[in-house]
Design a binder for these strands. Structure first.
Lengths: 235, 235
DNA sequence: GCAAAAGTGTTAGAACTACACCCATGC
DNA sequence: GCATGGGTGTAGTTCTAACACTTTTGC
């Protein structure tokens, strides 16, 4: 915004690209699509699209994540905007990157297949087109920060989950190993978890208690936001 | 980025708006311009401009801050991008917000006058046009985060400065009071300051020693970046 | 000589890290 | 009965926060 006249200004293509994070027992993942319109092999990219004139950035990001996952009410956060002149060789395009957190067990598998999309462990992200690797790196950095200041998990886990699962989620986010006892003490001291009487017995013989989030308290913590609740933890 | 065809897509106006932070003994400030083209009274805004087709976002932000301050090599960081459909009533415009940190004693006063710009204490930011207040809030939040993880000050202070000044800077950033002894211990333990033998005697009878940053070590800390070095501190 | 700001250490409490064993169950 | 993953407590260390007096010098 400035003192120049609007009419004569350049108008640019504006894109949205989404880093869709998901989590299951085998780890922390990103959803990528095979980007075939140049039909090179192994040409992966983020999910994206262009912003329409009558559509806000946030709305465009919702539309795009919904298109491929089928999910409504997705948690989305803006990461950054990339705008080098030649970042897209076809035409000058600026791109606003977002990340999404979804429960990996609840997306629409049909849609994902249809778009040639696959989940990649964050340790095995392939080379992506354009500057999409930069976006993934920035998304991870931002998510790690977020996770160190606010509880994270509600968006990434099913309604009920075990503490070992939650720990694996944090280990995935920080790409590190955590001490079981310290992790439990810490996460329970946040006072946002409610223990149920049910046990999950698919993944161990003894079975692990299922917990759920106390939504009220959870949201309060998330909105508070500035208090430090987790540091990247020790091994 | 997506699978749609580029030609038919909408093209949008893209603006840059800059939150220019400065610091002097009387506090922590933001530079605003009187936005007179509708000639309402007291119609303040951030400094901004439109992005040209052949100009990167970062370059546009540099150009804009340079235009009003006359400074080169300004520290700039992207904050966020705002893109509601009706955020600018004149035309659909998305705006990428940046913040700049400058030494308030070294800008070009002539230019600032010419643009009808003034410094406002961050406690007294007036109502700004469009969504510019949102940008200022986001800038502060981001700067506070940055200051809690990396040393800040090199960009905002003159080459030599006193510890009481540096403390006032942090107090300004966090809008709080800090304990002198704890502050000194902490900031010195970062091992990025070098004490000189000179004293600054304009502001006290006893005089305070001048310090400078050890640029090597400072940059190393800034690039490292992820280690927590300051929490928002106690009163 | 006194007002005004600079400078300096200690201590109690809180938080963090590291660490090892028993439990419940399916096979 | 044993292998597998779930669950639990403590002690040493480090970090943090609270706090008061002396120094210098311009007036």
């Amino acid at each position: 915004m400035g003192d120049e006249h609007y009419k004569k200004q350049d108008h640019l293509l504006v894109a949205i690209d989404c880093v869709i994070f998901g989590f299951d027992r085998s780890g922390f993942k990103v959803l990528l699509i095979e980007h075939d319109f140049k039909s090179k092999k192994e040409d992966w990219s983020l999910i994206g699209g262009f912003v329409k004139k009558n559509e806000s950035l946030d709305a465009a990001a919702v539309k795009i994540t919904n298109k491929i996952t089928g999910l409504r009410d997705i948690y989305l956060e803006q990461i950054c905007t990339l705008g080098d002149v030649n970042r897209d060789p076809l035409e000058r395009t600026i791109s606003v990157a977002y990340y999404a957190l979804i429960d990996i067990d609840s997306y629409d598998e049909e849609l994902v297949k249809q778009y040639n999309a696959s989940w990649f462990s964050i340790n095995e992200i392939p080379d992506l087109i354009l500057d999409h690797n930069k976006m993934v790196d920035a998304a991870l950095k931002k998510l790690r920060f977020k996770a160190s200041h606010q509880p994270v998990g509600f968006e990434l886990l099913p309604f009920k989950f075990t503490l070992p699962d939650l720990q694996k989620l944090y280990e995935g986010i920080y790409n590190t190993r955590l001490d079981k006892r310290n992790f439990r003490r810490r996460i329970l001291s946040l006072d946002v978890l409610v223990k149920t009487n049910e046990k999950e017995k698919e993944h161990s013989k003894k079975g692990a208690y299922l917990y759920k989030f106390d939504q009220e308290k959870y949201k309060k913590k998330v909105n508070k936001g500035d208090s430090l609740i987790f540091k990247p933890m020790s091994s």
